[in-house]
Design a protein around this nucleic acid. Structure first.
Lengths: 231, 231
DNA sequence: AATATAAGGTGTCGAAATTACACCATTAAA
DNA sequence: TTTAATGGTGTAATTTCGACACCTTATATT
């Protein structure tokens, strides 16, 4: 039996592709929908922009409502405006991405009834998503892959203190290729925006690695004219 | 006396930043508005997206109606969604750019009454534009400056057959800096996507230069993984 | 015919960046 | 004490980058 849905004329909406990095794996945030159409499907967090809020504000609000996450640095990357994207009417969607540290403890949980749940899912082997969200995800993933080379986005995904191996495995996850350890370290250190700490990794069952911090001020100075960080 | 304008709830619109290159100078296409608000002001060509057309289709249609130009390869670059952008109501605008050859003969002329005229204007010394169009232009100019390094956009601005000096002066106009002639030629030729023709420039009062063509197929092969074309 | 003008076209060398490549050191657990 | 796992390091060959100057050719001018 087919459910008859109401229709509407035309709305703006926001969809969010939120990347996290955890246990050497790149993940994105998905929700389980609780409303028709695509009820029970997995989808990107997204909803409708209000009359009196900018799209940037809307992106923050919507992400919060659907996942409980706040104060991310979200950036728009593409607008999807095909006519038949949404079964109920005309929807033009501005897609945003953000990068975030997943600390084991950080729980994600919808604040509204619109989503049943929210959770992290590895970017490899994503299931089919609602609407054209698979396409939106792909577009976003390609964007950050490219931006990795000229913006310090890697550091938003890592904890404040990180090891060079963690940094490298993040690059490898995003670029989807192996990098040479010695060359990677040489290059990263040569930029001068990594601050070596007097601290070591803890709780590992092998030789502990030195911890580093990302020095935002040095970065800003050096990269006024953007460069490629990795080949 | 203040004119009272009608208001509306919310619309999508398109604005176009169309770059052309002529006589060694980079230009964009402006219209003179024929309607309130901002009647008689200069503005980017732009208008409202219809219910039943995709934003890409709308961009093509709107550009045609306001300038008579057709079949450009337009690409979206940013969406502007501040609340107070438009005095009459909420407007979210997807901005597109395109690059085009200005052949002396190619006239631009509005097809609708919405614009009084359309014309090319050098990107240096642009006047203040209607709405937030100055900001839109700046954002677009920065985008193509960056894309110049990894997309063959230069070739869309040049005539089909061009000299290396023309190519270089286009790069110089977009990047806004002088480049070394020998290094530039060495690098461009080394990529292998320029086809040397058996023809020379005509009608110049000095030694005629060889003409080249851009070889799209070779380009596509070489640049599957994008590179920087110029430092 | 001679000259002036304007742009076309070309090569080298040093510096810097990139790449390929392998082994010993350290720590914790078994 | 041994094993397992990762940390951490240097060099040499190659490639790319950037700086740099002069002769050639075509047309216009006298």
């Amino acid at each position: 039996m087919e459910v008859k849905l109401p229709t509407f004329d035309s709305v703006f909406s926001i969809d969010c592709v939120i990347f996290g990095f955890d246990a050497g794996e790149l993940k994105i945030l998905l929700i389980e929908r609780n409303e028709e159409p695509f009820k029970d499907w997995l989808a990107l967090p997204g909803y409708i922009v209000e009359q009196d809020e900018s799209i940037d504000d809307a992106a923050e609000r919507i992400l919060y409502e659907l996942t409980g996450l706040r104060d991310l640095h979200m950036q728009q990357f593409h607008t999807f405006g095909e006519v038949k994207r949404h079964p109920q009417g005309r929807v033009i969607t501005v897609a945003y991405y953000a990068l975030i540290r997943i600390n084991g403890q950080k729980e994600v949980k919808p604040v509204t009834q619109y989503a049943k749940s929210a959770f992290w899912h590895p970017v490899n082997d994503l299931p089919k998503l609602a609407f054209d969200h698979s396409e939106i995800f792909n577009t976003g993933f390609n964007k950050i892959r490219r931006r990795l080379n000229y913006q310090p986005i890697a550091f938003e995904l890592l904890p404040e203190k990180f090891t060079l191996t963690q940094l490298q495995s993040l690059y490898e996850a995003v670029l989807n290729k192996k990098l040479d350890k010695r060359n990677f370290r040489k290059k990263m250190l040569s930029y001068g925006f990594l601050k070596e700490l007097d601290e070591k990794q803890k709780g590992v069952s092998y030789r502990a690695a030195k911890l580093y911090k990302f020095d935002r001020r040095k970065y800003a100075k050096i990269f006024q004219n953007e460069l490629n960080l990795v080949q």
